[in-house]
Design a binder for these strands. Structure first.
Lengths: 232, 232
DNA sequence: CGAATGATTGACCCCCTTCAAAAGCGGTGG
DNA sequence: CCACCGCTTTTGAAGGGGGTCAATCATTCG
């Protein structure tokens, strides 16, 4: 226990709340979001923080954003990594209950919550898109919960790499780009950086993955084996 | 690792999918659900199983239902305990991705998914109720994820007891009824039955809780202390 | 009462954490 | 170009929290 990594870089307070992911094909939502303005963010900048008024939701246009919750003593649980196309900040409360911070340089598009909510009140189609988006997010969160609650370190890493592979585009090539630091992976999986590092090394030794240049690019050499290791 | 408790009692296949919780005040939803038929279930009966066609959603009328996911090797992660008023089985897929099993005798009301979806297509108000219900569920799942990913056994149990106290009615009296077995608590919190048992004993020894008759009724003797122990 | 199921308690062990140090990896400037 | 600095990752050694195995106790039900 105690993964404790610093949130750092408390940047100007952008907005919007809880969060959700948009599945492919949410045209109505996409249309609405196309109207928002785009913000360019440096690595480790905050998109929004817990407690901020929820004024916008954001669609990731480029880069990766970590959505997380911190405990009073600094321990941090990353809830999700949001990739291009994903939407963060959805919810029902007036304030954000989570924080969101870029993992690397990123672009996000902001859409007014007030506008979105007003539109959804009369547009059942839009409301359903929102509903499905949250269902998607819920499904992903449950998957992570199962991983963190039941799996060993090797299983967690295997599961994480496979999830990243299917989420972050590039399904064609068996390659995954680890834009995030080890500390981010650790805080997602409920492990420590040391255990993450050791476990990645172990997977490399076992021959299921290969690491490239500074450990940011991972080649999945044996995906079936990786799926076995993830155990379900 | 390896909590592994048997799902048991594979009962006649009722229906409906993913799942969600209804916040107080979802009148449209409540109205619709009032039309469904009520099923009476014994303890440990299944409401639905992973893979079942998603034909109904269920509102808990009485009792407690465990919503869970099992891994191939039998390990089990309980995602949520559903209490009266909660709705389970919401989702976007045609099949259930989770299983739901009663923890004790229970009554659930079934509502047709087809009917609900058709109604939501034209009724923006209903669609929004669904949206808010899933947001609520998402929020609860995230809270559990933080608990399982970051907290120690004592912190998990303290958090669990407090959550139960605020969820399962009875906020007036500092009393919690543990309708579920130790194995259910263990599979919710990512611990083993032995650790759950030992930790409850420890909390009792510390004087923060009291146990009654067969360990099913828990008195929260020092709630502020319990909140400290839950650490956030 | 005896069988079955669940809860508690004990003893031991292992996986992961903790603490610590070394090694990479960029960037910057002399 | 390379030395130096900050940050991250890797690796090592030691310890602990919770898991595993197993026995005892409690409760329920036939």
């Amino acid at each position: 226990m105690l993964a404790m990594q610093s949130p750092e870089l408390r940047t100007p307070p952008p907005q919007i709340s809880s969060d959700i992911r948009a599945p492919a094909g949410t045209l109505a939502l996409d249309d609405r979001l196309a109207q928002g303005t785009v913000r360019r963010l440096e690595a480790k900048e905050h998109v929004f923080c817990e407690g901020d008024p929820r004024i916008h939701v954001f669609r990731i246009e480029d880069g990766v954003v970590a959505v997380y919750k911190t405990l009073v003593d600094g321990r941090r649980q990353i809830i999700d990594f949001a990739y291009p196309g994903d939407i963060i900040g959805l919810g029902v409360l007036r304030e954000h209950v989570l924080s969101a911070q870029t993992v690397c340089k990123a672009k996000v598009r902001a859409l007014s919550v007030a506008t979105l909510e007003r539109a959804a009140e009369t547009d059942a189609n839009l409301a359903i898109k929102l509903y499905k988006a949250v269902c998607q997010e819920l499904s992903a969160t449950r998957h992570l919960l199962v991983t963190v609650g039941q799996r060993s370190a090797v299983e967690r890493l295997a599961s994480f790499l496979l999830t990243l592979h299917s989420r972050a585009g590039e399904q064609a090539r068996p390659t995954v780009n680890l834009a995030m630091r080890r500390s981010d992976i650790a805080d997602l999986l409920g492990l420590t950086i040391e255990t993450v590092s050791r476990t990645i090394t172990k997977l490399r030794t076992m021959g299921v993955i290969d690491i490239e240049q500074g450990g940011t690019t991972v080649h999945l050499r044996d995906i079936p084996r990786l799926e076995e290791l993830a155990s379900g």
